[in-house]
């Protein structure tokens, strides 16, 4: 394999990992906010892809705007969906054991998957490109503008999310609620509002990932399960409840899959991913980075 081909493969793995990172980030935000796994995260990614396809003709194509401008629109739309999601999947169950939320998110995932199948049809669809056209050639390596757009958008969104949660008043409040809802309520933060915001953010990130993936990798109603699995693994190896760990875990998975597949086969790559995972759990049973989430029942 030439080094050029290798570089191209690495770039692909990185782009895939970057999109996984957005999914995992949304996943971990919900874990931190309410302590529950959101089994619908994969379907929300798929929904983001279809949302982009649905609104692209209304916005981008008509006005001749690049798909990149769709990103904030899709995120806004999905954020709104996230508010509804919180009120359906979480708030009616907030006083119940967390496993109830597992099932409510499973149910919503089913609804989204089959709604997409019924409304958009079973065929895979191609999403709007972020930026059309060929990109620059760097040392013989053709960088497609689309891929650069995906990488750039993902990097921007990951850092913006980190800054928002770490540096802004609202972000700090969200984290305070995540750490100790009662204490937060006692100092005048309204936990319900912060939890709603967490869901909105998580779903918006999933939607963004959906748009970023939809052009290069298409979108079909049955894609959800795959993304959910990848996010779950990323979050666990990165240290349950850590934002940085989720991003790191996702990038590692993206690179690992692509690189191992490039040198062996897809079968080996997948088997080895789970094999390494089991070995890691056997020798380092608490993830790559120490976990930071509060303990829960």
């Amino acid at each position: 394999m030439t080094s050029l081909a290798l570089a191209q493969i690495l770039l692909n793995g990185l782009a895939l990992g970057a999109a996984y990172a957005l999914i995992a980030l949304g996943f971990v935000i919900v874990i931190n906010a309410v302590g529950a796994v959101n089994f619908a995260q994969g379907e929300l990614v798929m929904a983001g892809g279809f949302a982009a396809i649905a609104i692209a003709p209304l916005v981008g194509d008509a006005a001749g705007l690049p798909g990149l401008l769709l990103l904030p629109l899709v995120m806004l739309l999905m954020g709104g969906l996230g508010v509804g999601f919180a009120h359906l999947a979480y708030f009616p169950l907030r006083k119940r054991p967390r496993v109830a939320v597992f099932v409510s998110t499973i149910a919503i995932g089913l609804v989204l998957q089959h709604l997409a199948n019924a409304v958009f049809g079973a065929a895979p669809r191609v999403g709007p490109p972020l930026i059309a056209g060929d990109g620059p050639v760097v040392g013989g390596l053709t960088l497609s503008l689309q891929q650069l757009g995906v990488l750039g958008s993902a990097a921007l969104l990951v850092s913006a999310t980190g800054l928002f949660l770490g540096r802004t008043q609202t972000g700090r409040r969200m984290r305070a609620v995540a750490q100790d809802p009662e204490m937060a309520a006692a100092i005048g933060i309204r936990p319900a509002r912060m939890i709603t915001l967490s869901f909105a953010l998580a779903v918006a990130l999933a939607g963004a990932a959906g748009l970023l993936l939809s052009n290069q990798f298409f979108v079909s109603p049955n894609d959800g399960g795959l993304f959910m699995l990848k996010a779950y693994i990323a979050v666990t190896i990165g240290g349950w409840g850590r934002l940085d760990g989720a991003v790191l875990g996702a990038l590692l998975i993206g690179l690992f899959e692509t690189l191992v597949a490039a040198f062996t086969s897809y079968l080996v790559a997948e088997a080895l991913l789970y094999g390494v995972l089991l070995a890691m759990l056997a020798f380092r049973p608490s993830g790559l980075l120490p976990e930071r989430a509060r303990t829960r029942v």
Binding site: A5, G225, T258, A262, S265, Y266
Partner: peptide
Amino acid sequence: EEAVDISVKDMLPVLTRMQA
């Protein structure tokens, strides 16, 4: 020859190996 799972999105690895 190679078997490709339906969930595989990135085909570049196998295309590169196939070239060899």
